[in-house]
Design a protein around this nucleic acid. Structure first.
Lengths: 148, 148
DNA sequence: TATTGTTATACTCTATAACTATA
DNA sequence: TATAGTTATAGAGTATAACAATA
C-alpha cells in the first residue's frame, strides 16, 4: 500500500481535522445542506430564513439595518428582499419620517411561513447536534459566540 | 426610539447568535480573513494552504485523492494544483503504474514555503482562539470533529 | 465500462462603483 | 456632504457535462 493507493480510503485527514479552519468550513457546509433540505418544502433558502430571523429580531426595519444585522452589504440585501417580496413573505413600505428609506416587514403569509420554516430549521439544527450532549452543544455555541 | 432607529445599534442580534448556522458561518469567515492576512506574505491563499496540508498528510498523491481529502470536486483541484504549480510549490509527475494519474508532490521550495506558511496559519488560529482557555479550545475542536 | 485529468461552461454568492432621491 | 436604495458589473469559488487517455 503506497501513498498512491488511497482510493480505497477516501478520508485519512488526521492532520486536516485538527485545523480549525477545516472544521469550521465543513461543519458549516454540512449544516447548510441539512438546513437547505429542511427548508425546501417552504421554498426558502437558508440565507432567506436568516433574513427573516433578522427581521423578526429587529421588527420593521430599513434594508440597511437588516444588512448590517446579517453582516452583508446593502446591495446584497436588495436581492434578498426582492426574492422574499416576490414570494409574498415581506413587503417594502415607504418610511415617511425619512423618505430615503424603506420599511421592510412581514406579510401575514410571511409570518406564517416563517413560523413553520424556523421550526424546521431548528429541527435540522437539533438533528445535526444530536451526537452531542445538551451541555456539549451549549458549550459549542458559547465558544463560537465568544469568538465573534 | 422606534424600530427604525437602529442605525446607532448595528448589532442587536440576540436571536441570530443563538443560531448555529450563523455562528459557524461568521466564525469561519472571520478566521478565514485572519488566516488570509497571515498567509499573504507567502503569496498563499487559505485554500491553497489547505491543499498543501492535504498533500503533506497524504504524501505524493493523485489529484483525485487530494480532491477527496479536501472535500472538493476534482475539477476544482485542477485549478488549485495549477496555481500551486505556477508558484513552483508542487509538481505533477506522471504515475507509471497507472498512467491515467498524476502524482502531485512538493518541490523543495514548496516544502520550505509550506513550513513557514503553516506556522503562520497556526499562529493566526492561536490568536483567533486566544479568548478561549486551552481546554475550551480543545473542546470546541472536539465537538466540531464529532459533528463531521 | 469505469476512472483520471482536463476544458468549457454556468451557477451561486458576494462586493464595488456609479446613479437617484433624499437628508 | 452623507445616507438609503438601486442597478450594472465583476470577482470568487464551486460544480456539471463532455472529452481524451487509460484501465
Amino acid at each position: 500500500m503506497g501513498a498512491m493507493s488511497r482510493e480505497s480510503d477516501p478520508e485519512p485527514r488526521n492532520e486536516l481535522t485538527n485545523r480549525l479552519g477545516y472544521l469550521l468550513k465543513h461543519t458549516q457546509q454540512r449544516l447548510y445542506e441539512l438546513t437547505a433540505a429542511a427548508l425546501e418544502p417552504f421554498g426558502l433558502a437558508g440565507r432567506e430564513l436568516a433574513v427573516l430571523v433578522v427581521l423578526d429580531a429587529l421588527g420593521p426595519t430599513s434594508q440597511q439595518d437588516a444588512a448590517r444585522g446579517l453582516g452583508v452589504d446593502r446591495t446584497t440585501m436588495v436581492a434578498l428582499i426582492d426574492g422574499l417580496e416576490a414570494k409574498g413573505l415581506v413587503i417594502r413600505r415607504p418610511f415617511e419620517e425619512d423618505r430615503r428609506r424603506n420599511v421592510v416587514e412581514f406579510t401575514d403569509q410571511g409570518r406564517d411561513v416563517y413560523a413553520k420554516a424556523v421550526a424546521a430549521g431548528d429541527a435540522a439544527e437539533s438533528q445535526f447536534l444530536s451526537g452531542l450532549s445538551g451541555s456539549e452543544a451549549a458549550r459549542l455555541k458559547a465558544a463560537l459566540r465568544s469568538l465573534l
